[in-house]
Design a binder for these strands. Structure first.
Length: 368
RNA sequence: CCGAGGGUGGCAGAGUGGUCAAUUGCAACAGACUGUAAAUCUGUCGGGCUUGUCCCUACGGGGGUUCGAAUCCCUCUCCUCGGA
């Protein structure tokens, strides 16, 4: 990537719970909690918003509870913006337990077998009830491997559903003052196919959304085609609207995507890998990620498995460049011990550390 | 001292004549994790090398029966539980 192709954007996104500067990363709070962390912890890590999930919150705690608390913000006590995913990813991840028709998707809960039917309109309704600041349309995220004709069908359904979401959203939010109105984002599908990505991007743009997401890249083979998918998609999206790469990713994927013109990210990696004892470490070039196109984005960091035997006597910090609580107070040996005995403090400290890594990475990318 | 039941790989615990270097769980060691069915999943886990349906050593010790024993018999030893 040469310097001319460095397209880092600094947008401001206004939401009912405050404005956001791009590019940013959203910690994942699928069920209304970033696993193991309090909102206070998240503020200290300088998180600016979190992601919740329509499908999960709809089932638990359910809308009755959410309504009682006047929305998810008050329930989970997070007063900054929340983006909610529509349940579209569950179309993919629960593929064994679902059935799609044009009307919507029926899911059966893996544990109980209990059936639920989600439609584009229902998804919007739930997200409005949650009080989400950024609402995602329900999309069809095809599994992989997947034939081109199946991807094509998913693109077409995604467009039809997006239109329904938009119409329903307009109808439901017509009376809400602009400053309190949530944003609605469309989601581009199309797999790894140039023509389908372009078609999807164009169709969504013509419907008109407050922002556009690139979906269907996070898991499996499509990830290998990330740069291509962005090239196939971004030219057909409006310049002045935020772009959100759903579900990614590794640091190098995020850095490269920011430089390709993506503004928003979310990913389970920092928290999940943290809970599993994988810790991200800043390398020397970490601070320069936005400055030079010559920086290899894969080399700005490394990863350790803190449970490895070699750390049992290691008195050093996890990451000497990190300002998180873990790195300010504890040794590698102690964190390893916490993991070995299975204390939940281990997961909490590691999640915080990894999130701090991701969030600081975004800070570096915001200041060109 | 008598009666009964036991001693299996780091631990727990299967296996009661060949398909057993030995099920399984835990521990240990390593790996994976991408819009969270994920505090989860995978692999290795007696030793050796010429990595082979290979060789050694091994189911408390010793001896025996058998073509063949962790498995059957004898003996020693140790543990547990009842009774003196």
């Amino acid at each position: 990537m040469d310097s001319k192709s460095n397209k880092i954007r600094n947008l401001k996104i206004d939401t009912p719970h405050g404005s956001l500067k791009t590019p940013f990363f959203m910690p994942i709070a699928t069920r209304g909690v970033v696993k193991g962390l309090t909102p206070n912890d998240l503020e200290k890590l300088k998180a600016t918003l979190v992601l919740g999930n329509t499908y999960h919150l709809w089932l638990k705690p359910g809308l009755k509870v959410i309504k009682k608390f006047n929305g998810l913000h008050k329930f989970m006590r997070w007063e900054k913006p929340i983006l909610t995913d529509s349940g579209g990813f569950q179309v993919f991840s629960l593929s064994k337990f679902r059935k799609i028709t044009d009307k919507g998707v029926s899911f059966s809960e893996p544990e109980s077998g209990k059936k639920h039917f989600l439609t584009p309109e229902k998804s919007i309704d739930i997200q409005l009830t949650l009080g989400s600041d950024i609402i995602m349309v329900l999309d069809e995220c095809p599994p992989w491997p997947c034939s081109k004709s199946e991807v094509s069908a998913a693109v077409e359904r995604t467009t039809r559903w997006a239109k329904r979401c938009k119409d329903y959203f307009v109808e439901k939010t017509g009376k809400i003052p602009k400053s309190e109105k949530p944003l609605l984002f469309g989601i581009v599908q199309g797999g790894v196919h140039k023509d389908l990505r372009e078609k999807s991007a164009r169709e969504l743009t013509s419907i008109g959304f407050d922002g556009y997401a690139v979906g269907g890249v996070a898991v499996g083979e499509p990830r290998e085609y990330l740069k291509k998918v962005l090239r196939y998609t971004l030219p057909f999206l409006p310049e002045n609207k935020p772009r959100y790469l759903m579900g990614l990713g590794r640091p190098e994927e995020i850095i490269d995507s920011v430089k390709a013109g993506i503004d928003m990210f979310d990913c389970v990696i920092p928290t999940r890998e943290g809970r599993h004892g994988r810790l991200f470490i800043r390398e020397k070039t970490f601070g320069k990620i936005s400055q030079s196109s010559k920086i290899n984005s894969k080399k700005v960091y490394s990863r350790i498995n803190i449970e490895n035997e070699k750390y049992s006597l290691d008195k050093s910090k996890i990451d000497s460049q990190c300002d998180c609580y873990l790195c300010q107070n504890y040794s590698r040996a102690y964190l390893r011990h916490l993991f070995k005995i299975g204390d939940t403090l281990a997961m909490r400290l590691a999640s915080e550390h990894n999130l701090r890594f991701y969030l600081e990475m975004m800070e570096k990318l915001r200041t060109k």
